[in-house]
Every structure is written in C-alpha cells, then in structure tokens.
C-alpha cells in the first residue's frame, strides 16, 4: 500500500502518448505542470516589471538584486552583467516550481530526475558554449590543463578535468533531485505509519497520530528552507562553472 501511495504521489504518469522517431515523447503530468508554471511566470513577471507601486514589486526586486549582486557579479565580475536574465530565470524557475510542489494535490516537478537532468544539461551547454565563444575552441580545450602543471602529469589532469566536467553536471542534477524528493518521501512515510499502526491495532493507530503529524509538519518546514538553499546553490554553482570557463587562468 505504501508503494501504491508513493507511486501515486511521486512518479509521473503519461497522459497522452505520442511517439516521435521511436522516442517516447509522451505528455506526462510533470510536463503539463511545468508548462502551466511557465505560462504563469510569463504572465506575472512582465506585469510586475511594468508596475512600480505595488509591494510585490519590491519583493521581486530584492531577489533580482540578490541574484545580480551576490551571484552574478561576485562570480563573474562587472562584465558578467549580461548573463543576469539567464540566472534570474533559472533561480526563479527552481524556486517557484519547488514551492508550488509543497501545496497539497500538486506535483513536485523538480522531484523528477529527467527535469533536473534537463536543467543540468542546460548548465552544461551554457558553460561549454560560453567557454568556446569567449576563448575560442583551441584555447578552451587547452584550459583544461591547469597552468603550471608538470608535463608528465598533463594527460592525467586532462582526463581528470574532462571527467570532472561530466561529474559536476550529474552531481548538480542529483543534488537538486534528491533534496526535493527526500522531503516528500519522508512525509509520506510518516503519514503511512499511521495507517500501518491502524491495521495492526486501532488504539495504537490513534496514539501514533500526534507524533507523526508533528514530525511531518517539522519536515515540511525544514523542506521550505531547503528549497531556498538548493535553488541558491544550483544558481551559484552554475555561475562558478561559467566564470571558470570564461576567465583565463
């Protein structure tokens, strides 16, 4: 029964099946959710950018300033200001989709390995494309070997850096996915404890209600904090990787 409940809440199920070139590109629940949240953001943010006298305006401005000053300029210096729209979009997308996932009867989009894998892939593409654009292809490949390394160790360091490139991307994806899904699994397990104890004995089931509800409330509050921190960490690490790829040593 727990497995059924977990499968219902955490996994995503396909609504419309469509197959393109043999790949399974069906429209799933999480995709509908991401599209709906994107349309909401596309409607809300330009309106907020035009209005100047609402209180929400200052809230969003505080976060945009935070992204611009503490993440983009701190990593890439003054010339990195043209990347601010990308990082703002990344930060706000992770934040809003994860926060909406805390509402009951909605799905956590970032709790899907494919979605976070897609976001990490965009980071991968951004880092490599910007590195090649700013430094040129040959210089970028040469930058994989840190300057000042003894020539004997150069091939080994080259391979290690290439592996590190992929590892950092995958770690980025798995970090966000695991943080988001762990909170939900723990809450579902705590609530399922009540049903397990009730199946054994009615009284013990009733006794388990207060500690179980209390623990799940605490884990929910902790998860909100973790959402903010993980959104910041994802954007910050992306900025660090981009700055390392753009700047020469």
């Amino acid at each position: 029964m727990i497995v059924d409940s977990l499968e219902h809440h955490i996994l995503d199920h396909a609504r419309f099946h469509l197959n393109i070139f043999g790949y399974n590109m069906s429209i799933t629940d999480h995709l509908i959710f991401i599209t709906a949240m994107s349309i909401l953001m596309l409607i809300a943010f330009p309106i907020i950018a035009r209005l100047k006298h609402w209180k929400i305006n200052s809230l969003i401005e505080v976060m945009v300033l935070f992204v611009r000053d503490d993440i983009v300029i701190a990593s890439m210096g003054k010339e990195g200001e043209k990347y601010t729209p990308y990082f703002c979009t990344l930060f706000f997308m992770i934040l809003t989709t994860s926060l909406v996932g805390m509402i009951p009867f909605s799905k956590t989009v970032t709790g899907n390995l494919s979605v976070t894998g897609g976001l990490a892939l965009t980071t991968f593409l951004l880092v490599n494309f910007m590195g090649i654009k700013e430094q040129g292809l040959i210089k970028y490949i040469k930058s994989f070997v840190p300057a000042g390394a003894p020539p004997l160790l150069a091939p080994l360091m080259f391979v290690l850096e290439i592996i590190g490139l992929f590892t950092k991307t995958i770690a980025l994806a798995i970090r966000l996915f695991a943080n988001m899904i762990a909170g939900h699994i723990v809450v579902i397990c705590f609530i399922s404890l009540i049903f397990i104890f009730t199946q054994m004995n009615l009284i013990s089931g009733l006794i388990t209600i207060p500690p179980s509800v209390g623990m799940s409330l605490f884990v929910n509050l902790l998860e909100i904090l973790i959402i903010f921190i993980q959104a910041y960490i994802f954007t910050f690490l992306t900025a660090i990787f981009t700055s390392m790829a753009i700047h020469e040593h």
């Binding site: 994107s38 943010f45 950018a49 979009t89 494919s114 897609g118």
Partner: peptide, 30 residues
C-alpha cells in the same frame, strides 16, 4: 530512470522561458 522525452521538453521549455522572460520581464526591471 531518466526519461528522455521529458528531458527534451524541459530543455525546450526552459530556453523559451529564458528568451521571453529576458526580453519582457528582466530587461525592464534591471
């Protein structure tokens, strides 16, 4: 299991979001 269809749609959605939001929302705000 990574589901490649969803990964592709996510990346497409994200790039579209970056482009549109950058033009209409972040540029005036910044």
């Amino acid at each position: 299991e990574p589901h490649f269809g969803l990964m592709f749609w996510t990346i497409l959605n994200f790039f579209l979001l970056v482009f549109l939001l950058g033009k209409f929302a972040w540029k005036p705000m910044i």
